[in-house]
């Protein structure tokens, strides 16, 4: 175990995968010489320009060529600098990568990873701050990973690279500086397994990405209120660990879902719907969602702080369950 920050942990995982499999390459805008969040610099220093490839500002080509390269036998790890640019690559991601295995009758594999940076919190405003995981989860054929800790990031980036499907790997920009113990050497986590980040008996807080950290902070506050909150980190939205959610709810009977994405049609709605369907009889309180409001991300630091869910809001939602 070593203490690594979130970005280092991802780079560690990528380097191990690139050593293991020569078909793995990294591609994106400024991934080699001037990485926006620095993550892939170490990969470039280790493997050079053939395997860590800078591209022009051409998200469509980054994503589109990755689809072709993957279909032709490579394993691209494409970086889309901000998740907000998902709109630019949506045809390549959702209409091509996601569908090829199915519409070609299972004869073709498209093993690629899209690493992309999400989230508000640095004053990056409306076009560089979104959490768009629900765009991804609404497309069958894509996997969606959103880790919250350095260790999970390392284990899941390795799993994403090894997966034979297109995987979107969401990295919240505020997590990059967070540190934690990370297993040394090869470390691969299963995709589709949630993780109880804190056990509790009174309420289940389901979240992912940076909101796990906020939920843990809320759980601390709630402990002082006499409420034992369980924080369940989904880690992977597709495939979803439904069993873990229902199992936790079977113990707590109360559910609060926390995500930074805006509320309407957010992935929290999907979790709530699943629970209403498959866990109806487990509920002893309404399902609450703590999310951003249905607005673009504001620039003003004051407004941005109000936009992002925080521990106090999560606590209030839990306490409102009675």
């Amino acid at each position: 175990m070593a203490v690594r920050n979130f970005g280092q942990a991802i780079a560690d995982g990528l380097i191990l995968e690139m050593e293991r499999d020569p078909d793995v390459y990294i591609v994106g805008e400024d991934v080699a010489t001037f990485p926006a969040f620095g993550v892939t610099r170490a990969c470039y220093e280790r493997f050079g320009a053939t395997r860590v490839r800078d591209t022009p500002v051409s998200e469509t080509a980054i994503m589109g060529h990755a689809v072709g390269a993957a279909a032709a036998g490579l394993r691209p790890v494409a970086e889309i600098m901000f998740m907000d640019f998902l709109g630019i690559i949506l045809d390549e991601l959702a209409n091509q990568a996601a569908k090829m295995h199915y519409m070609f009758g299972g004869t073709m594999k498209v093993p690629l990873v899209v690493r992309t940076v999400s989230g508000a919190g640095i004053g990056a405003a409306a076009q560089h701050s979104q959490s768009l995981e629900a765009w991804v989860t609404h497309t069958p054929g894509l996997k969606m990973i959103a880790p919250s800790t350095p260790a999970d990031a390392k284990g899941l980036i390795a799993a994403a690279v090894r997966d034979d499907n297109p995987v979107v790997f969401m990295e919240h920009k505020l997590l990059y500086a967070t540190e934690g113990e990370v297993p040394d050497g090869e470390y691969v986590l299963p995709i589709g397994k949630a993780d109880i980040k804190r056990a509790g008996s009174d309420v289940t807080i389901v979240s992912w990405s940076s909101m796990v950290q906020k939920s843990l902070a809320a759980a601390d506050l709630l402990a002082a209120d006499g409420v034992a909150a369980e924080v369940l980190d989904l880690r992977t939205l597709v495939p979803l660990d439904k069993d873990a959610i229902l199992e936790s709810l079977g113990r707590t009977h109360r559910l609060v879902i926390v995500h930074e994405a805006v509320k309407t049609s957010g992935f929290g709605a999907e979790v709530a719907a699943i629970v209403a369907d498959e866990g109806f009889d487990l509920l002893d309180a309404p399902i609450k969602r703590v999310t951003a409001p249905d607005t673009p991300v504001p620039f003003s630091p004051v407004l941005e702080a109000a936009f992002v869910p925080d521990a106090a809001k999560i606590r209030a939602a839990v306490l409102s369950l009675g």
Binding site: G68, A71, Q96
Partner: peptide, 21 residues
Amino acid sequence: LGANGVVGASIPIGVGAALAC
């Protein structure tokens, strides 16, 4: 690598395949 229902979508795919080559 497949026919394609979206006009123009095959072009980056073909380029990616060229990179693989």
